[in-house]
Design a protein around this nucleic acid. Structure first.
Lengths: 341, 341
DNA sequence: TTTATTTACGAAAACGTTTTCGTAATAAAG
DNA sequence: CTTTATTACGAAAACGTTTTCGTAAATAAA
C-alpha cells in the first residue's frame, strides 16, 4: 500500500481537494453523506495527512520540546512521564533535548526551538546557567514556555517548583532533632535556585538552632562528575571533626555519600546521618534505608505541561506570566537518620 | 526581532529567493562573495529556516522516534542517553513515545510514525506485544527501524540485543554455585524474547545441574503493577519449602523481591539469594547489595541508533535486515548471593 | 572572430496541506 | 413570483522552503 496523499484521495472519491480536506476535519460546510464517503475512503486507502504540510499551513506543530539536564535521573524520568501523560491526552508529540548540564548546549537547543519546530517548551535549566538571555529568545518569538523544578529565578514566567526553602529548613531541623551537632549541606551549584533556596533554608534553620556558621560555611559545593564528587566527599569525611549530618541537595550526590562513607569506614547513621532530596525508588531498601525529601516529580511534570497547554491553546505566550505553582515535597524518614547510636 | 523568512531575507540583500537558499546551503552555484553577504545577513537578522517547509520539500524530517514501554526505568533512561548522543551528533531530533506496556498504544504510536513525521524508528516492544503486523506497517512505508533490547523475535530486521540465553544460564549457575537447591526465575511475559530467552537459559542450566523441573515449573510469571507483583512474591515466599534463589528477569521486580522478603522475614542472602537483570545504579548500596546482570544500556541505545542512521543515510530501509548485534551483559556479584550462612 | 563552456544567478514549479472566497443549487421569506 | 438566505461544494492562494531549469555574462577553446 503506497503512501497516498490528499490529492489522490480526492481523485478516488471524485471530489475536490478542498472538499476532502474539509470532510476530514469535520467541517460544517460538508454534508454528512460526503463526510462518510471520504472517511471511509481514507480508512480504506490508509490515508494519513502529512504532518509537515499541515504544520506549515497551520503554523502549528503539535509538538512540544522538553529540555532537561539529563535523563538518567529518577526525578526527570518521572517528570517526563507526567509531561507525556498530558501531551498524549492532547495528541501532542514530545521532543526531548538534553543539555548535559552545559550552558552552551542549552543555548543551542533553545535557538533550535525558536525555528517554529515546537509550539511550546518545558525546561529545567542546567546548573551552569546563570542568565536567561537565551531563554528570552523564546519570548521574542512568542513561544510559550514554562520552567519546571529548575527554574531561572528572576524571570516572571510560568514555573512549577517545589517548596525548596521550607524543605531546606526541614532537612536541617530533622538532622538537629536526630542529634546532629555539625550538619552540612551539599550543593551542586550556587546559581541553581533549587540548590540555593534549599541551602538558604538549611542555613536559616541551623542558625536558628544556635549553631554558629560564621566561621565555617556549612554549604559545600560539589563539582561535576561522580568521581570528583566521591573524592570531595571522602575528603570531607577524612577530617578529624567531620560533619555528623549531611544533606544531599540532589539525587546523584546520595549515591556518592554512601560509597564514600563506606570506604571511609564512616557508619550511617551512627557517625553520619544522611538525608537526600531524591525520588529514588530504592531508598527504602538501601543500606541503610535513606531518609529522603521526595519531590512530586510526576505532578511537577504534569502541571508544568498543563500550564504550557493553557498558553498554547489560548495562543497567549504571556498568559501565565507570574504564575508560580508550588508543589510540596515530603520528608520520608528512614534509617539513614535514625537516632540509635 | 520578528521572525523573518527567506523571502524577506532575500529582499534585504537584494537577491532572489533561490540564490539565498542556495547560498545558505553552501551550493557551488553561488559565488563566495554572495555567500558571505547572505550568511552575514542571516546571522544579523536571526534568520532560521522553517523546519516544516524544509521537511515538506525535502521529504526528510531530521527526526527519529523512540518507542519504549516506560521511561522511569534505569535501563531505558540510559538507552535514551545513548540514542541521544548519536542523534545529537547527526543533528537529529528525538521524539519519545511511551507504550506503557500496552499493545494498543504501541500500535497507535507506530501508525503515527507512518505519516512521514519521522525518518526512522527505534523500538523496544511492550510485554503485551505478540505479533508484528503493526510493525510491518513501517516496512510498507519504507521507514527504517531497529529493535533495541526488546525485539520481536521473528522479524528479519535490524536489532540490538544482549546475550540473554547465556545470561539466563549464568544466573542459574551462579545461584547453584552459591548453594541454591531450589532456584526460580521471575518472568514478566512469555512472549517477550528478553524474558523467554533468559528463562530458557535458566531452565537449561538448572536441569543440567541435575535439578528436576518436570514437576514444577521454575519459571513464574508476574503480572503488571507493583502491588500485584509484591503480593505474588509474598505468596511465593510464604510456602513451606519456598525457593532459596530467585532471578529477577527485569529491574522492576528486584524492588518488590526485596520488599516482600523484608515483610516475610525472609533473609537475603541467608534464606534467599537474589540476582537481577538490572542497571540499577544503587545496586551496590542496597541492603544487601544486589548481584546484578548488567546490560550495557547506553551502548545498546547507541549502536541501535547507529544502525538506524546507516539506513537513513543510505536511504535503504532493508539495508540492515538480518543484522543482529549482540552486546554482552556482565554478572556483577554482590552480597545478595553471598554464600555465608 | 566564432563557438563552446563555465559561472552565477533568477523564475517558477513543487512538496501536501488548509483556508478563503466565489458560486451554483436549493430552501425560505416577502 | 421574486428576493434573500442557506447549503454544499470547487478553484485557487497561501504556508516557506528546495530544486529544476533557463539564461545572461564571462571565460576558454577553436
Amino acid at each position: 500500500m503506497k503512501k497516498i496523499n490528499i490529492k489522490e484521495l480526492a481523485k478516488l472519491v471524485n471530489l475536490s481537494i478542498s472538499t476532502v480536506s474539509k470532510a476530514l476535519r469535520d467541517s460544517h460546510e460538508i454534508s454528512e453523506q460526503t463526510k462518510t464517503t471520504v472517511l471511509e475512503a481514507a480508512e480504506k486507502f490508509g490515508y494519513s495527512p502529512n504532518p509537515y504540510a499541515s504544520s506549515l499551513r497551520k503554523k502549528k506543530s503539535k509538538t512540544i520540546a522538553v529540555i532537561l539536564p539529563e535523563v538518567a535521573d529518577n526525578f526527570f524520568s518521572l517528570a517526563i512521564n507526567g509531561i507525556q501523560s498530558v501531551a498524549e491526552s492532547k495528541n501532542y508529540h514530545v521532543l526531548i533535548y538534553l543539555s548535559h548540564e552545559k550552558f552552551e548546549i542549552e543555548k543551542n537547543i533553545i535557538s533550535h526551538c525558536c525555528s517554529g519546530r515546537v509550539d511550546g517548551v518545558l525546561i529545567s535549566i542546567s546548573d551552569e546557567t546563570t542568565d536567561a538571555d537565551h531563554i528570552l529568545k523564546l519570548t521574542n518569538e512568542k513561544i510559550p514556555f514554562v520552567f519546571f523544578d529548575r527554574e531561572f529565578e528572576f524571570a516572571d514566567t510560568a514555573k512549577v517548583i517545589t517548596n525548596d526553602f521550607e524543605c531546606g529548613e526541614q532537612s536541617a531541623r530533622h538532622l538537629i532533632e536526630r542529634g546532629c551537632k555539625h550538619p552540612v549541606f551539599l550543593s551542586v551549584s550556587p546559581s541553581l535556585p533549587i540548590c540555593s533556596k534549599r541551602a538558604e533554608g538549611f542555613k536559616d534553620a541551623i542558625t536558628e538552632a544556635g549553631i554558629d556558621i560564621s566561621k565555617e560555611d556549612p554549604v559545600i559545593y560539589c563539582s561535576g562528575n561522580p568521581e570528583q564528587t566521591f573524592s570531595q566527599i571522602k575528603e570531607l569525611l577524612s577530617k578529624k571533626d567531620h560533619a555528623d549530618g549531611i544533606v544531599a541537595s540532589v539525587e546523584r550526590l546520595a549515591m556518592q555519600i554512601y560509597l564514600a562513607s563506606l570506604e571511609s569506614g564512616v557508619r550511617i547513621p551512627e557517625d553520619l546521618k544522611v538525608i537526600a532530596f531524591s525520588t529514588l525508588e530504592t531508598a527504602p531498601i538501601l543500606n541503610p534505608s535513606l531518609t529522603t525529601i521526595t519531590q512530586p516529580a510526576f505532578e511537577i511534570g504534569k502541571t508544568a505541561a498543563e500550564l504550557l497547554f493553557k498558553m498554547i491553546e489560548k495562543n497567549n505566550h504571556t498568559l501565565m506570566n507570574n504564575t508560580t505553582v508550588v508543589l510540596s515535597s515530603t520528608l520520608i524518614e528512614r534509617n539513614s537518620t535514625a537516632k540509635r547510636n
